[in-house]
Amino acid sequence: MTETYSAKDEVGQVRQRRSRWDRIWTELKKAPITAWFGMIVIAIYVIVAVFAPFIAPYGEAEVHPLPFAPWSPEHLFGTDQIGRDVFSRLIYGARNTIGIAFLTTILAFLIGGGLGLVAAINQSWLDQILSRAVDVLMAIPALIFALMLLSIFGSSVWSLVVIIALLDSTRVFRLTRAVAMNVVVMDFVEAARLRGEGLGWVMRREILPNILPPLVAEFGLRFCFVFLTIAALSFLGVGIQPPTADWGSMVRQNASLIQFAQYDLKAGLTPILPAAAIALLTIAVNFVVDWFLIKTSGLRDEV
């Protein structure tokens, strides 16, 4: 064995070049069953939410003569306390509950993520002020803070979205700042600054692509948190207001049915249904995020 050194022949793990879709498909094929379960559940929820008016047998606020009707072919899951079809409201609930939570999470990421990135790069008085302000805001439990603000601004969908997004953006700020800080200290960022690149270029081209995977995972987790908070507030009667169908308030409205479980188990299950719908989506998102986190932990070589 002779050793003639050549830089070209050094062992670099060259991977096969495949198209993006090919790569995603190979990753998907290797995904564990839990991740598949999660993705399928999420897909079903999204379809139901988007096509709600075509799937639901009755209208969102359509009132039928018999309140608290039992489960039957006409009313699959019966009717609620003023005679609205529970099945239809579950379907519209998907649209409202998920839609509002999604919108809120996006808003939280725009605010928290943007400021977190700026704070990480800037690292001066701005970072100091933002970080201290976030510390103080986070010293008040989110649900309590939300309750207080809602008592002042009133319970409309928009105040709900803005209040929860603002409160949640503090968590997003912390994470984005921490993750971005890890990237900011890397030599390639210093190299870009030494080259004379502007702040915008450094943020967009050097830092953002490298913090995207943890942020995507965090988006999933934050969505669950926001979703559960909004459901809790609606359950408490200060979130999404009737007649808009949403799962949290549906649990509360039908709660009294649970006492009849020993006579009619199906009726007793009615308030559990929307709560279970909430839990199922949260579990599904958690499964997918878990898998995604394992796939992308750290600075991976390839997306």
């Binding site: 830089a7 050094e10 390839e302």
Partner: peptide, 10 residues
């Protein structure tokens, strides 16, 4: 290539 596909010397 991406940096992850290079050896240390490369």
């Amino acid at each position: 290539r991406l940096p992850g596909e290079l050896s240390g010397g490369q």
